[in-house]
Amino acid sequence: MNFKQSQTAAYFFLAPALSAIFIFFFLPVIAAFIISFTDFDIYTLGNFSSVRFIGFNNYIKLFDDPLFYTALKNTFYFVIVAAPLSIAISLGAALLLNSKLVKFKAIFRLSYFIPVVTTLVAVAIVWRFIYHPKFGIINYLLSLIGIAPIDWLGDTTTAMPAIILMSVWKSFGYNMIIFIAGLQNIPEDLYEAASIEGASGWQKFKSITLPMLAPTTVFISIITMIGYFQFFAEPYIMTQGGPLNSTLSIVQYMYQEGFKWWNMGYSASIAFVFFFIIMIGTLIQLKFQKNT
């Protein structure tokens, strides 16, 4: 077969997927970028010709918008607490399940993993009732150790921690699987050599397991961070962003501005700031990887 024929066939195979991705992914990204420099709003929706370019005005407005800062702060709070917590628990679970002492690994792995595949909206609704101040399971468990009932989702200081706990529960199983794969790739003889030299369990963990897992950990940190940065359904279902906007997330703010108030130009600028933050976060973590 000559190169030309092969080329035609290749384009034939690529055409459906790549046209779909081009028209319904790349074009919208470019369009969103352009829209972010316009005053696209509900009137524009009726009459496209009324749209005007307003330069960086949306972005300037954004940096003066207290609600945007609240959303930004909440999102960072969520990511900075939930991501390390989720990674630590995933690693702990992976280490336990990788231990040679444990049998029936499949059953434990399955129970930790089930929340990952379930529908976020459905489990967020379940957790709403689990956090119920009067009848919820959490307050019941706390009452056993003498702690008075807490209005988890109704209090500005506890609403975010409550959402974080639920999100960690929902997703730690995913990272656990990747950690288990990473652990199984560490050559056994490293541990044997360390044992001969009399290393303790902790020393082995610190000087063999952690360094050997570093690439896995970077990968997990990136996907966890990106995933958590996009959190939306959790506050939408559990708190509607409240109380007093204490759980309003960036994506939720973007959704409200864009699809509730139809301030599409403004919403698009939020989308790009959001994208930019995710990109910076990823680059920082990749840089970490190079240094380790």
């Binding site: 992914f25 969103a32 829209i35 994506v251 864009g258």
Partner: peptide
């Protein structure tokens, strides 16, 4: 472009 979050495309 895998790094571009899908939320960016939603409005257009």
């Amino acid at each position: 472009s895998m790094i571009i979050p899908s939320q960016v495309t939603m409005l257009p």
